[in-house]
Amino acid sequence: MLNIKAGSTSHSAYNLRSVYSDVEERHTLAVIVENEPGVLARVIGLFSGRGYNIESLTVAEIDHTGHMSRITLVTSGTPQVIEQIKAQLGRIVPVHEVHDLTVEGPTVERELALFKVRGEGDARVEALRLADIFRANVVDSTLESFVFEITGTPEKIDAFADLMRPLGLIELARTGVAALSRGPDSRV
C-alpha cells in the first residue's frame, strides 16, 4: 500500500526508494542532544548494542546557554536499518531532534585532517606541491617534516592521504564529518 515512501537516497532525482530495499546506503544524521553527562554513551551504546555501523561521529556543544550539543553521525545500512536507527535515536530521552541530512535536501559536508609527512629531497618538494594543489596549509614545519592541515569532503581527504602515503605520511588525525543543509533555511 505504501511500499514507496518519499524519502531517501542521494542517487535518485525523484528521491524515492523502497524502504525494503537491500541496498546499503550511507546517511549523514544530525542529532541535537541535551548536553548532559552520558548522552554520547547513550548514542554510541545504541549503535554497538544493536549492531549498527558508525563510519564517523563528531560531537561538540553548539549552544552553551541552552546546553545543546550537535552530533553529526555518518552511518550505513539498508533503508529499513536507517529508519530503525533514526527511530531508536529519537527514543533516547535527551535527544531533541534527529535529522537525516541525506534525505532532507542538499548538504555540505566537511572534515578537517592533520597530516604529518616526513621526507627529504624530491619527496618533500612533491608533498608540498600536492598540498598546494589540495589547498592544504602547512601548520608546522621542520627541516625533515611538515604538518598539513586540510579541510574538505571525506573523499578529498582520502585522496590526499593516498597521495601522501608514498611521500612519507607517518601520522594522520581526522575530525570526522560536520554537515549542514545548504540554502538559507535551517531545519534543525
Binding site: 529499513q80 527511530a87 531508536q88 529519537g90 527514543r91
Partner: peptide, 8 residues
C-alpha cells in the same frame, strides 16, 4: 506508541 516498533 513507539515509532521504533514499526517496520522493525
Amino acid at each position: 506508541i513507539d515509532p521504533s516498533s514499526l517496520n522493525k
